[in-house]
Amino acid sequence: MSAINLPGIWAIYRAEMARTRRTVLQSVATPVLTTVLYFIVFGTAIGSRMHQVGGVNYGAFIVPGLIMLALLTQGISNASIGIYFPKFTRTIFEVLSAPISGIEVVVAYVGAAATKAVMIGLIILVTATFFVPVRIMHPGWMLAFLVLTALTFSLFGFLIGIWANSFEQLAIVPSLIVTPLTFLGGAFYSIDMLPQPWRTVSLFNPVVYLVSGFRWSFYGVGDVSLAVSLIFVLGFMALCLAVLSWMFRTGYRLKP
């Protein structure tokens, strides 16, 4: 047997993508509909009073934030369900008994979750172009942020999926932590628009850095510098990887 179990990675990846295909309506139609609703509510209602933010049309300004919102929630939910569901139905025994390493399992599950998140991000981007004039100044950076964010939050979701012992726990982190952080993370406004002390408080919100870097790749403006955004994404990814490697080493909640 080769050093890397490629057929094993591929088998998990394909099975996860098949799950997406089975739930295509929920997977794809929901984010598109949500995005359209955001445009109607925020773009039209607020945009009619507030035309520009930092020289960018308000409708276009919120596009990167909306995509980030989708990447975070999709990455987390896909990856957490991806690993939690086999735990719940106990089909995980097969993965644990297979000649496949922890890293390979992560690559497969997280890769599939991130693929789906990126696809949805791109679908939202395309949908947005029907509503507002979107332009992308740095397409390379845009894609890099898209993929990095999807991967990082899929990793985070994978951790939640391993940690969770119930469907309630599975839902707690995304709904009680991630959604508020995203809404307060400058997806729909520039943090410059906030009064003090909230502007300073916002700098402790990790999502600010993600949205800022991503928005910079579109319009060349951001709340914080590109380097800071990048360091944050990579740092969070490294943290998730460290926790994961500890989980696999100790068999945490997978292997008694």
Binding site: P7, G8, W10, I12, R14, P99, I100
Partner: peptide
């Protein structure tokens, strides 16, 4: 087929 792939075959 999934099981076979998982076991590296």
């Amino acid at each position: 087929q999934f099981s076979r792939g998982l076991f590296g075959k």
